[in-house]
């Protein structure tokens, strides 16, 4: 079993025009920076991207939007990206906005082998349009389908050569869920260690879900909203 690849270019080598990609991260926190750069360089287009956010104008998925590589975006919140809003209002970009918990749970369902889940989020709103609903214990729930993505691209803090992953702080977010949900899962990590070095009790994503792994380079880890307090 050899999951280790040389870098982002090799990891994304067979991602093709029209593929559906999941990209981990919340805002700019825990995004797969190396793979996004490689996708921008490769220039694949017509992509459907599933990610909680769409980056900012000049970082994250925003870089792919600038190059018009994204045909459709499935996200929960896109308020930080002016180029996104422009492409959406001009009709260049197809967008499906879905509740954040629904997005997470549709990833979870895919990774757990469940075709659909029921959630009350969106009942009585336009999110419910065209969806099957059911009443359990006097409360209405929408049936939401598991995602089906060609590739999931995630970022972890540490990983080992077996593909086991550990995340750091709130950079965990959607990464372990998407890692479980791709037909092919690519993980970029800040530190790649030999199998056996991670404590099996502390692993968040079991390597069975991960197909390719590499140690990323030159993480910028841009902060979106730098908020501080002054020392008294």
């Amino acid at each position: 079993m050899n999951k280790v690849v040389s870098g982002a270019e090799e990891a994304i080598r067979d991602i093709a025009d029209g593929n559906t990609l999941m990209l981990g991260g919340f805002g700019l926190c825990g995004i797969p920076e190396n793979c996004i750069d490689a996708l921008v360089k490769k220039g694949v287009s017509g992509l459907t991207c599933i990610s909680n956010n769409a980056g900012v104008d000049d970082f994250g998925i925003g870089l792919m939007l600038q190059q018009k590589q994204v045909k459709k975006m499935i996200a929960s919140y896109v308020g930080e990206n002016a180029e996104f809003e422009r492409q959406l209002l001009s009709g260049e970009l197809e967008v499906e906005l879905i509740p954040q918990g629904t997005l997470a749970t549709r990833c979870l369902a895919a990774g757990y082998g469940m075709p659909a889940v029921f959630t009350p989020a969106g009942v009585g709103t336009e999110v419910a349009d065209g969806k099957e609903s059911r009443v359990f214990n006097d409360k209405e729930y929408l049936m939401e389908m598991a995602f089906d993505a060609d590739f999931a691209i995630v970022k972890a803090w540490k990983g080992d050569t077996q593909g086991n992953l550990v995340y750091k702080e709130t950079a965990r977010n959607f990464n372990p869920l998407m890692a479980m949900a791709g037909r092919v899962t690519i993980a970029e990590v800040e530190e790649l260690v030999p199998a056996g070095e991670l404590d099996p009790d502390h692993i968040h994503t079991p390597g069975i879900y991960v197909h390719r792994i590499f140690q990323g380079r030159a993480y910028e880890k841009r902060i979106e909203q730098r908020t501080v307090r002054t020392r008294e």
Partner: peptide
């Protein structure tokens, strides 16, 4: 067009 984020999940539950 910003999106609902987690608001729909929160208010539903």
């Amino acid at each position: 067009v910003k999106g609902m984020g987690g608001a729909m999940d929160l208010v539903a539950s």
